[in-house]
Amino acid sequence: MYDLINYLWETGLNLLFSPEIFEPLVFPGLIAAFSLLIVVIWLERKIAAIIQMRYGPYYISRHTEGALQLVADLLRFLFSEVIIPKSVDKIAYVLAPIILFAFTFLPIVVIPVSKDFAAIDHEYSLLIALALMTLYSSFLLIVSWASNNKFSFIGGLREGFLSLSYEIPLIISALSAAVLFDSFNLIEIVEKQAAMGWGIFYNPLAAIVFLVVIIYSTSRYPYEIAEAESEIVIGPFTEYTGILFGLGMGISYIKLYSMSLLYAVLFLGGWEPVVWPLNLHPVLPGIILFIKAFIIVAFSVFLRAVYPRYRIDQALRIAWWKLFTLAFLSLLFSYGIKIIEVMG
């Protein structure tokens, strides 16, 4: 009997800590993403409050500066009524946000946690992550169309225009990192960075372009155009209520999180350096990766408090002239570094 329990326990533990289960479910998957969601939205409100000389969320839990605020908001969204208006396309209205959430979540699975711990260790894992990221905008278009509301439709069209313009700098700047480290495999890229030094020092141009594209594509503040509060109510999710709106609010943060993980792997050295207590188990270096990604996420939500918003034509001009040119230059820069390496 005791042997059986022991056997089951060990098998269960093994199954949980095998990368195929652990990555999508615990870290950097569902549980880590949701806890980050709760912390980051609270942080966004708190930073904005501190900059405006207010307290921000406080009385819900006084000892932790109101960190439970998002739990309360989530509960309210969970228990409030889900209204399905009469004029919407019912199937698309209900299913599209859920599919969109799933597709936003997918790129996280490709990203490795440490050298020996990756759910999908493929030689083109960088390209797979980028390819899954480009599917976002089309589902958002379906969401915005399904509501049959003028504001959500305008928001969706804005997102479409923006997505056509940000995808190209995104892919080119990621490719310039791939050219720099001569590999499309994320694990190999991090290994090369451990040997050479972080990518942000080798090619700062690509790092800057990628950072701006992260902020651009997840509609954080200077580019919060698809969900502009003061112009179109809340963009594609205007008609949504209850938990469906909660999903919609979470989607851009989840996308921000996955892109920040990719940024940390490409330019900030991933899980390096692996110091003493972290080399005991292959999961533990993920903590460093998480901290690096969290810094990027926190920086992007901090921008809400200090920046105004661009008009859509200004944002498009920035993407097509500045970002596109800079991304192209960063690619040339990477090739230049490669040539110098080959010559010298």
Binding site: R45, A49, R54, Y55, G56, P57, Y58, Y59, I60, G66, Q69, A72, D73, I83, E229, V233, I234, T238, E239, Y240, T241, F245
Partner: peptide
């Protein structure tokens, strides 16, 4: 906002 009162955008 100390009490969780956050003026938000739409009635939905």
């Amino acid at each position: 906002e100390r009490f969780g009162v956050l003026p938000f955008v739409g009635p939905r």
